[in-house]
Design a protein around this nucleic acid. Structure first.
Lengths: 200, 200, 200, 200
DNA sequence: AATGAATGAGCCTTCATTCAT
DNA sequence: TATGAATGAAGGCTCATTCAT
């Protein structure tokens, strides 16, 4: 929990510096000293604004989640109808932010660390639940609940799978490719359902 | 004469111990001492059989890749035709081995570390290329090259996405679910192509 | 604000502790922990003020050179004429400082290590060049250049030879002995030249 | 003490390998493993022929002394009269062997280590005493005892001083230089005495 | 609020030595 | 005699954390 009034600016500086350090050195080689240097402050300051290194890193990962959520919400604002809302999610997950080297490094670092920490694990759990619930929510406006759950599962896997493949392979040349593949999957799934309906 | 031929045995012991340690403590908190203790040997012996900790960890990750490959190859043996071969890949990727906590921990650790090491990066690159080439190879017997590439991309993403989601959420209750979802995706993609063909 | 200006103080403390450790344990058995203990600080602090052990040891050896130089310069201040200046050098090289067990241990340690390190080698090179140039400079006021070079070579050898013999034999009972022997060599060399001149 | 009959060949192999290692890595970085590798044997063998590493190193240093002695004795054989015998000593001390990089490295290593070990110290003590006694013995045939002692002291210092300077500066271009300087010192000292005698 | 000096635990690695074979 | 596997004790160094200022 952020200690309000105690300097949200410093906190954000340090979180950004942490992300920068994870990008440059990797999570394993990210030290308090390196974060502080990148933030242009002294190493000791970290313990004024965070319980310790783990806390700063936790808040850093939470920021990733918050940024992604904010991006989705922003895109929702201009979306008309459930299909466009689904696209908002897809586009946010494959947006420039999510494929930036810094963010990629941080997420992948989280992947490799979450198992050892309940708090970090929780961040990923929230991410997964939220993604699924966002998808299901809009899919239910298009197909029956059971179908919605199944399709949401598939799209979520598609999103994570394409992201992780591109992330691990060192970025993506054309960000349209994962979007297109995922959207094709979505439209195919919806079409398949429509066909079933017609057949009946 | 000292005990001869201890090399391969000790090496394998240490690799297994490394995996066990990554499972129990996480990659970041896996130390040479812990690996050695799990292997029941002294810490110094590690440098008898490996250049150093990094080397042991690299070989450990390489073992993951080799084990997966061996699993696929074994399943290929009893596969009849391209469709069954595609299923061999899917089943191997979602086999009990790949979802065992030890293997999950190791792969996820690799995800979070590969960016910092060319050698580790290479392991993931080989994994990705091999998966894709395996899929494309059999899909070409069923659909035209261009379609094969597109479908392979989708299946690979599906495999990685489902695996990573289940892996991060702490394993999978029913290993049939990811297999079914992926196979549905495959059959749908093939069916879609057949429809196109018929329509023409 | 933390304690300011601790840098130079700690650095000198550690250098002195290093010399003390070399004296007590020998250069080969001088460890960071031992140096720190002698300095009354924690082992980790060494890397706050020096790049590492090698750096501290290098600075330690450099201090030897600086101390010797300072001693010579101080004696120069009260020297009248070239002959007295030559004696200043001789007296400094055979002063109490240079025969103190700590300084002896450090110089001898340097002798045995310099071959493996360019930086340490450089210290000895500077010492040798400086000694020779000091001698030559004053001898030129007494004899022709060529003679000056030859005599300087001889005196330098005399100084190093007597020092090393006494150093290796565990110090010197009467520091006047090496001084006298060297001064005799000097006066004999000068007399020899004067004789030549007269003969001509 | 060499264990006779237990393999003097192996012992000598190991001593030579030790010298080679001291030359290549320095005394501080000379390990049992490196010595063994240079000797083409297994690391464990060292403890069959020597009490341990220290013992091997001690015997190595003792070999240096023995080699120098043998060289002097060999030159004595063809020397006619005390003056030539004195030259034998000078020539041996400045012979190719004593200026070879391997021998230089070993002697300098001994310089830096002797203070920590009585046994090693003893080697240097023997060297110093022997050199002095050799010189005095022959000088007594030329000058009165008191003069002989003084001149011997000077020549010994000259020998050690020139050797150490050339050794530390990375070898000697012309081995004649130190010989000439020392011989000049000797002849000058003898001439000086003759003059005194004549004057009287 | 902020600094950076200082601590001390822990890690990777090296190495002399031992020992079963 | 000879091997090289194996041990276990340090050693140098890093680093999160604390604290006087």
């Amino acid at each position: 929990m952020p200690k309000l009034g105690m300097g949200p600016i410093r906190r954000r500086q340090l979180i950004d510096a942490a992300i920068a350090s994870i990008h440059e050195y990797g999570l394993a080689d990210t030290t308090v000293a390196r974060i502080a240097r990148k933030a242009g402050v002294s190493p000791g300051i970290v313990h004024h604004y965070f319980t310790g290194k783990d806390d700063l890193l936790f808040e850093t990962m939470r920021q990733l989640l918050a940024d992604l959520r904010a991006d989705v919400v922003a895109r929702y604002a201009s979306a008309r109808g459930p299909f466009e809302r689904l696209n908002s999610v897809i586009n946010a997950c494959f947006g420039d932010v999510q494929f930036s080297p810094e963010v990629v490094a941080a997420w992948l670092g989280l992947y490799g660390t979450a198992r050892q920490s309940e708090r970090l694990q929780a961040i990923l759990t929230i991410y997964h639940r939220r993604l699924r619930s966002n998808l299901v929510s809009d899919l239910r406006a298009l197909v029956p609940p059971q179908e919605a759950a199944r399709i949401a599962e598939g799209i979520a896997a598609m999103i994570d799978g394409l992201w992780v493949r591109y992330a691990l392979m060192g970025g993506v040349d054309d960000p349209l490719i994962p979007r297109t593949l995922t959207r094709d999957y979505l439209t195919a799934a919806l079409a398949q359902f429509d066909n079933k309906k017609k057949t009946r």
